[in-house]
Design a binder for these strands. Structure first.
Lengths: 343, 343
DNA sequence: AATTGGCAGTCAATAGTCACGAGTGCTAAG
DNA sequence: CTTAGCACTCGTGACTATTGACTGCCAATT
């Protein structure tokens, strides 16, 4: 079994490799760190680590590089999570301090996270299945178009344009709007869907088609409210670290833009709700992302964590710093969103 | 002066170079095209073109490559704009057919444009300076937080969260909301700003602070409504064409994410309102983007074109196809947004 | 005057050779 | 368990030779 000093050797191999991006050899280890033993001893330890598949040699006679398993061991047992520097804390305050709307907060958050970690940052929109209807608004756009706006008490706004067959009458629309609001106000989303199904019946047949179109749109909007959405920033950072990828980063960038793959990945990582968790290298192979690592944390809720944020980057990333940053930003965002009224 | 056949030579140089990404020599020209003259004659023409700085040789003994000026000449005089293929037209219909809310339409548009051109696609949000206030909604989020939602009759929705000092009372908030709507409804944005400035005075001193905070937020939201915003897609395509850039594409990607540079660039190109216009290579030097080309078109308005969309890519891009795609998508989007009721 | 064929010259790209150095594995001794 | 020493492996960088794709120019031709 690998023990004591061997694990220390693994730690410095990960650290040095992340810093220098070059395979690290026994000699450079004894030079840069004070192990109090000779290079030959380190070599013996490295042989052990290689047997356990924690490190590997790219070529017969070169230094060693951590394997996926090695990174995993490092993340789980060897990295102490450095607290953020004061400069970083100040950046968080400065960036997120002036809170605006939800879109804006998340956009700022994702940019902040990308700057703190120098990686691609991802923030998932909160799911609002528990929210309630606050207000419905109908806005006539043209003779045959209406925009319906759907507002929840948790602050999410959905808008949608729909075409209607007949001609529009402003006062009719006002009537529908008033009735919708009196019926729906305060309902949960599931109840609202039920109520909407029966809603058109109370209208005269002449108007029923119009009302039905509107309720249909609203039901869709409620559905969209449950749907996941992702914002990201810092894709340029992926280009910066391009050398860390064996092939092209093209498929990775495509997956990021596609979103659906990442949302599945996020979903899978949702297991440990609140803490930070990492998914490393081949652990993402099923998503076609075997050459990247993802560090995420849940955020946003005392009533069950509902969304995640995190960073994505090459295997060879600074896990200590990134884990610390993800954790700090997640906590800050949770506080900011006000689910925790202690703020 | 360069004449007749020389310009034909320039055209095939641009076309072949774009297709093959390799400098094109006199011999390969006579092979691939039927000019009915010998390679030596082509060489003479090429000498002329080089004198006019329309083409250049990367090194002493290699084929020729179009210069910025050469591309410009090609775009202005030599490229016939191919109509889109039926497959491409179908893609437009399929992609944009099911119209939802504005956010969704623009998100689909930008993805579509990126797929049609295999470049980075950009769509600017329409400016709504001419729109009118439709509705204002105030949503209490917690004991000290309120979300204000601002809806215009053109369908844009702005939301913002604000902290208030004192405690919140639901009925007070309802009162403020009702009064705001009766005062603001139907006003233009500029008038609304004026009205809001005097609005808090009608309240009792005890509530004035709260009201003032709300009106301040609303004024900011109106301002944001005038602010530009950009959505993009297809950054992966930039990586795919990375070889076309002399240095790294990192600064280009950064500029894209930063948005502000591109918005300035868009602003500058707004000159010719409705047609497609291109900005090629060094023409973008003042924005630090001397190695890219941008093809844009205005869209959206019979009452003065208010926003632009387009693509961005390497100098060596398929201008004919991209110009056609940008134009088609811009027209389609204009129709879809309903400013032109003939749709 | 425009076109053509031919020839010399230039330069990038490719492949081959060689020496160097970093790093390992192994063995025998402390 | 640790150490020193030695032979061996490879990747790297420098250098050279060769090849091939061009151009530019000139003299001949239409």
């Amino acid at each position: 079994m690998v023990s004591g000093r061997s694990l220390d050797v693994l730690r410095v191999i990960v650290q040095d490799y992340v810093a220098s991006r070059e395979p690290v050899g026994s000699k450079s280890i004894v030079e840069r760190h004070s192990f109090g033993v000779s290079a030959a001893t380190i070599r013996n330890d490295m042989a052990l680590l290689e047997e356990e598949e924690l490190i590997a040699a790219p070529h017969t006679s070169s230094g060693r590089v951590p394997t996926d398993k090695g990174y995993r061991m490092f993340v789980d047992h060897l990295s102490e999570i450095r607290p953020l520097s004061t400069a970083q804390r100040q950046a968080i305050d400065a960036f997120l301090g002036a809170s605006l709307d939800l879109d804006d907060v998340l956009a700022r958050t994702v940019r902040l996270l990308s700057q703190l970690t120098h990686q691609v940052a991802l923030v998932q929109y909160p799911l609002l299945s528990k929210s309630r209807v606050r207000h419905v608004e109908l806005v006539p756009l043209s003779a045959t178009r209406v925009m319906s706006v759907f507002i929840t008490d948790t602050g999410r706004v959905e808008q949608r344009i729909l075409d209607v067959a007949g001609e529009l009458d402003e006062t009719v629309l006002g009537d529908i709007r008033a009735r919708l609001n009196s019926v729906l106000g305060g309902l949960g989303l599931a109840e609202a869907t039920d109520v909407l199904a029966a809603f058109p019946e109370q209208f005269a047949p002449a108007r029923e088609a119009l009302v039905r179109a509107i309720t249909l749109s609203l039901v869709e909007q409620i559905g969209a409210n449950r749907q996941d959405k992702l914002v990201m920033a810092g894709t340029a950072n992926l280009v910066r670290t391009e050398e860390d990828f064996s092939g092209s980063i093209f498929p990775v960038l495509e997956a990021i833009e596609e979103q659906v793959t990442l949302l599945r990945l996020f979903g899978e990582m949702a297991a440990d709700q609140n803490g930070v968790s990492a998914s490393i290298g081949r652990e993402n192979a099923e998503f076609g992302l075997g050459e990247i690592s993802v560090v995420t944390s849940g955020y946003g809720a005392s009533d069950g964590s509902i969304a995640r944020l995190g960073v994505l980057g090459p295997l060879r990333m600074d896990y200590s710093n990134n884990i610390a940053a993800v954790r700090a930003v997640a906590r800050y965002l949770t506080r900011l969103l006000g689910d925790d009224p202690s703020a």
